[in-house]
Design a protein around this nucleic acid. Structure first.
Lengths: 217, 217
DNA sequence: TGTACATCAGTGAACGCGCGTTCACTGATGTAC
DNA sequence: TGTACATCAGTGAACGCGCGTTCACTGATGTAC
């Protein structure tokens, strides 16, 4: 998100700018390192090294390791998959929307295995530290998806098989479960499984095996 | 003086027996402690304390911490949910089978939160250590479920919406995702969500408006 | 504009603690006679 | 049956290392005049 080039950019960067930059580098490095080794398994030296800095830089920008984890958590959780509904053309027929959404999700999993590892680490952390303020915008995200699903169902004149919010929860859960399985056994999960399941769930399950003669439109 | 007992129990236990018992106590303790703190976060002192023993007992029974993790992994992975299909009465109508299986799964989640935390820790471990021999009997379990689903579909005369193996993968994934969400936000996942989704997926989702009554052959 | 001083982000070394691992030992169990 | 020795599971102390955290310092940036 670099906007207009400020006059500053010809000058030496200000202290504030440099500090913000350092902080960002540390957070990026932490995301990489924590995904790879876990919160407990990764050291602050690992993080600093990955960022090309020293541990002192970490302590100059964060109170301690836990604080770093919390800030990172606020920054990352759930960001991954929020963009998908907006990228699916709502004018396509429903089964193709399902297939397309499934495809996008699977592509994301493949490209950003690391993000998902980090997210799992976050979820475990939250599950083990329930006192921790839960920064999930989970309910807002779920409502957003639920609204989209309801709206498209209304427009296209079909009925959702479950209340929209519950369906949204289930779809998230299915995605998370598929992601998890893929993380451990990539070969066991076909690429189009998520899309096909979406089609089944939304009740427009195209052709079924053993049922010849079903026509695509 | 207690009366007659089996000869063994009057005798002092053999060395071998005592060792096996110690090993079992350590493994139980490790399951508890690793679920609570994670592999990296929990120390062997924690494990030994939980078992009422000392670290030396751990090293007398396992080569090192990694070995303990591996043995525990072999022992626990996937054991949780395998029993469910056998507990569902196959003579019930399909939607009730779905509801019943969902109910059993949810009850298990609630009662054995710790087991699922441990399983997640395992999965993360496997995802991060792909060299590790993957001890999952995952494929066997999947095939077993797939066979059961196929068989019941055949008997009751309906068609599975996806090839049985893929459907089994998806059902596992849905369960895992629901479990994950529940772990973090127990209140956000209705108790009967899994059962209702199973009913939807298996195509007997009560009445769907706009779809004429499906007849069994 | 230049000069002198103040600030403070990041450095690098140090500290102390907890951890995984090792090891000499002990005392109960097993074995030979 | 009893006696003498061997074995070995588990103990408890020790070791060394890596970690989170602290701190005196440095040198670039900021400020006052």
């Amino acid at each position: 998100m670099m906007g207009l080039v400020s006059p500053r950019s010809r000058t030496a960067p200000s202290r504030e700018e440099k500090k913000a930059q350092t902080r960002a580098r540390l957070l990026d490095a932490a995301a990489v390192v924590f995904a790879k080794k876990g919160f407990a398994g990764a050291s602050l030296d690992d993080v600093a090294d990955e960022a090309g800095l020293t541990k002192g830089a970490v302590y100059s920008n964060f109170a301690n390791k836990t604080d770093l984890i919390r800030v990172l958590l606020d920054l990352h959780l759930g960001v991954r998959s929020d963009a998908i509904p907006g990228e699916v053309d709502p004018h396509l027929p429903q089964p193709e929307q399902a297939a397309r959404a499934g495809e996008l999700f699977m592509a994301m999993l493949t490209e950003e295995r690391e993000s998902y590892l980090l997210e799992l680490e976050f979820l475990l952390y939250l599950a083990r530290n329930p006192d921790e303020r839960n920064p999930t915008n989970y309910l807002a995200r779920r409502r957003a998806i639920a609204d989209i699903m309801q709206q498209r169902a209304d427009e296209d004149g079909y009925t959702l098989p479950l209340p929209a919010e519950d369906l949204a929860t289930a779809v998230f859960a299915l995605g998370a479960g598929i992601a998890l399985e893929r993380l451990v056994n990539p070969a066991h999960v076909p690429d189009d499984l998520f899309g096909r399941m979406l089609a089944v769930i939304f009740g427009v399950a195209g052709d079924q095996p053993g049922k010849p003669g079903s026509d695509k439109r």
